[in-house]
C-alpha cells in the first residue's frame, strides 16, 4: 500500500528505547528537516502526552499550557541534537511551561510552602486523586506527578526540572506527606 515516505505504518517502526513510546527517531529527524507531514505525525504522537502532563501540573490552565509547550517544542525542534532523546526534552519543556502557567493562573495554590491545611475545608468534595494533586503547591505537585504518573526516577525528575536531586528528594517527601494528609482527611 502506498503511503507518503514519512508516514510509516506502526509495523515498520524501528525499535526505539523504552522511554520513547510511539515516537520514531527517523520521523523526528524528518520533522527537524522541515518535512511537514512528519511534523504533523509528530504532533499526533506528542500532543496527547503533552496535554496529559499539562492537565496534571496546571489543571487550571491546561489548554494554554499545552499550546505554549507545543509551540516551544516545535519552534525548538531544529536545535534538538539527539532525536532519540526527544521525549526527555519534550518532558522538560512541557513541565517547565506547565509550572510557569500554573503559577500564573493559581498563585495561591502555587505559592511555595503553602500549607495544604488552607484547603482543608474544601477537601470534603474531592472525588479523586487528581483533585488532591491539583490542590498541592505546584512545586510539590510536579514532583509527585512525575514520580507516580510518569514513573521517573529522582535523577530524571531533577534533570527535567533543572534542580538538584537532593531538592527533588525533599520535595517528594513533603509532597507525599501533604498528599497523604489531604487524602485521609
Amino acid at each position: 500500500m502506498w503511503c507518503p515516505p514519512s508516514w510509516k505504518v506502526a509495523g515498520n517502526l524501528p525499535k526505539v528505547p523504552a522511554n520513547l513510546p510511539g515516537v520514531d527517531p527517523e520521523n523526528v529527524t524528518a520533522a527537524q528537516q522541515g518535512d511537514a507531514l512528519a511534523l504533523d505525525r509528530l504532533l499526533d504522537e506528542l500532543g496527547p502526552y503533552v496535554r496529559r502532563l499539562c492537565a496534571r501540573i496546571a489543571p487550571a490552565a491546561a489548554d494554554d499550557a499545552t499550546q505554549e509547550a507545543l509551540l516551544a517544542i516545535f519552534r525548538g525542534l531544529p536545535s534538538l541534537r539527539a532525536p532519540e532523546a526527544i521525549m526527555t526534552w519534550v518532558r522538560s519543556v512541557t513541565v517547565r511551561t506547565a509550572i510557569r502557567l500554573a503559577r500564573q493562573h493559581d498563585p495561591d495554590v502555587a505559592a511555595e510552602g503553602t500549607p495544604l491545611d488552607r484547603y482543608a475545608s474544601s477537601l470534603e468534595g474531592l472525588v479523586d486523586i487528581d483533585d488532591v494533586l491539583a490542590r498541592l503547591p505546584v512545586s510539590q505537585r510536579v514532583v509527585l506527578v512525575l514520580r507516580t504518573r510518569d514513573g521517573l526516577t529522582e535523577q530524571e525528575i531533577a534533570t527535567a526540572l533543572g534542580i538538584p536531586a537532593g531538592t527533588v528528594k525533599s520535595r517528594l517527601h513533603r509532597a507525599r506527606a501533604a498528599f497523604r494528609e489531604a487524602w485521609e482527611s
Partner: peptide, 10 residues
C-alpha cells in the same frame, strides 16, 4: 491551534 504549532516549526 495545530496550524500555529506547525508554523512554529517552519
Amino acid at each position: 491551534d495545530r496550524l500555529a504549532i506547525l508554523a512554529a516549526a517552519l
